[in-house]
Design a protein around this nucleic acid. Structure first.
Lengths: 325, 325
DNA sequence: TTGTACGCGTTATCAG
DNA sequence: CTGATAACGCGTACAA
């Protein structure tokens, strides 16, 4: 692969001149510029970003750590993040932690060694202290890990409230809430808080089922839903914390002869496109995934440029009513 | 961020010694080794991979260009590729071409500037010639672009044959085949070839509908399915070239009062997890996505190590019969 | 308007 | 066993 020296040689100028042409710096005569461009295209020259990054102490790399990019929510999130990153000149290093703390730690180290300019943390299996000692530019999703580290989330409480109140307003009297692991101390627990506030206030029966969300093992979802509906055949409302789970819930209802929404009403979360493949289509709480992507990249860029950023970033959610309610 | 010099200074040795400890090269006294490790952990030292890569002329980066990581098939593929890449010490740079030739070209250039060790091409919007002049180590998916460039695909003809013959054996007499853009010259066209061979041999009615696959615009799928079923109300079999499309087909059938599989039988392709969210679950042709990921990384590693690789790599497919047939 | 020389953080080579 | 030095490819003072 050609270097800047080869180009300089072929163009009959110095490397400095080539560099100047490359970066549009200083004054350069048109003839020189032409010669340099000619040599560059003849040699198929591509500047070595490794060398540039080393010199500039800036790699234009962003690390993205998520549980699993094959989960529809994170797939869409990754796509949006990559889109905005590309627009702003950043490249994305993809890391799937599989919710494995050891892997997550290794990925963090790898990203530091790779001198990424920032890390987007969508996976949170480690203790807060570990993240705080990172000394890397960070943006986290749905988890608060320190006053000085920006996080991005949506209005989870409102999402939970909208979902639960919709079920209540439709007359549900025994509602199941299926959520992720509450020990992880994620902001998505506000959904559960809101659920509890709403069902208690309404005085209806309810139950809460925890699951490792993030789609690591879909077989587990099926089993979970099955035993839930068996143990509580009189459930008439389900608020799931992701559309994937809601889709399984819907399936299980239909399989067991329940009609949706007549016998059981279901609300999902995220509004990934999977919500529209189901029949009937899922009523769900739409998360602003595009906004997440845009903001994640922007928050990182601001930090990279040394500009102040707000640490609490909550975007709005929206109730999307479809066929399951 | 600490450098090797800082470590050397703190440990009271030379940078060479630190480098030796780091890479386990040559003989080093235990005391020295201890001092160096001590200094490294005190300073939280992380070797700069940029500098290493520059020197070694090897970045351990792999570029992955796909149409859109939010499409379930590519999401799973990306996850598997990242998994195996990580196992073999490679990192993944994620690129979503959005089926846009200009973007694809830009990504290719970006990857070359980043000095990736190899590129996995899952997006194919450019002419074969452009890929051939790349002079990068490549692996392509489902497209043959030259005798010396390894490609990875599954047995598309067999997949199409299995799907179509299943529909025929169930008694379908008018079968629609929904596939991607046939102009792109992808190997997945073998599915269509097989479809044609089978329906013609059986002497049943058939029609072929092309679509930009890869889920770029799901609204278009819906419209397409709608007009298809309107124009041909007597269709009793559908062979879709992806589960996403099949899921929309299923939805549209149900919406228009058809029962599946009684009135219309449907076969999808890929066997992504979405196939199991549908009700009834989709009958589909399973693609070996895990095998794709493993082989893609392996084929690239072999090339990087200068070892010979086979250029034609076809993995087996499998019919998975579920509820839609 | 153009060129020389140094440094970014590492590793390989060669000397001690 | 350990250390000095050159090189990887590039950008930028500083000089001309």
């Amino acid at each position: 692969m050609a270097t800047i020296h080869d180009v300089a040689l072929k163009a009959g100028v110095s490397v400095t001149t080539v560099s100047r042409v490359l970066n549009n710096r200083g004054y350069i005569s048109e003839t020189t510029r032409g010669k340099v461009y000619g040599a560059m295209s003849e040699l198929n020259y591509q500047p070595n970003e490794l060398a540039r990054s080393l010199l500039r102490k800036q790699s234009n790399l962003l690390g993205l750590i998520i549980p699993d990019v094959s989960h529809p929510f994170f797939a869409k999130l990754a796509e949006r993040i990559e889109y905005y990153a590309d627009q702003e000149g950043y490249k994305i290093l993809l890391c799937n932690s599989q919710m494995n703390p050891a892997k997550e730690r290794d990925y963090i180290d790898m990203l530091k060694r790779s001198r990424v300019d920032g890390i987007i943390m969508g996976s949170h299996t480690l203790d807060i202290g570990e993240y705080r000692n990172l000394h890397s530019r960070l943006v986290t999703f749905d988890r608060k890990i320190g006053e000085d580290i920006p996080y991005l989330s949506s209005d989870n409480y409102r999402g939970g409230k909208l979902a639960t109140e919709l079920l209540l307003s439709k007359g549900c009297r025994k509602i199941a809430h299926i959520c992720g692991n509450l020990e992880l101390d994620m902001l998505s627990q506000r959904r559960t808080d809101a659920f509890l506030d709403a069902v208690r206030k309404a005085g209806v029966e309810y139950l809460i089922v925890q699951t490792e969300m993030n789609g690591l093992d879909e077989a587990r979802y099926r089993g979970l839903l099955q035993s839930l509906l068996e143990a509580h055949p009189d459930i008439d409302g389900i608020f799931a914390t992701s559309d994937v789970i809601a889709a399984y819930a819907l399936k299980e209802c239909i399989r067991t002869g329940r009609s949706v929404p007549e016998d059981v009403r279901i609300v999902g979360y995220d509004d990934v496109s999977a919500a529209r493949w189901a029949t009937p289509e899922l009523t769900t709480i739409r998360q602003p995934i595009d906004g997440f992507g845009r903001e994640a990249v922007r928050l990182l860029r601001m930090q990279i440029e040394g500009r102040p950023v707000s640490n609490q970033n909550e975007l709005a959610v929206e109730l999307v009513e479809r066929g399951t309610t």
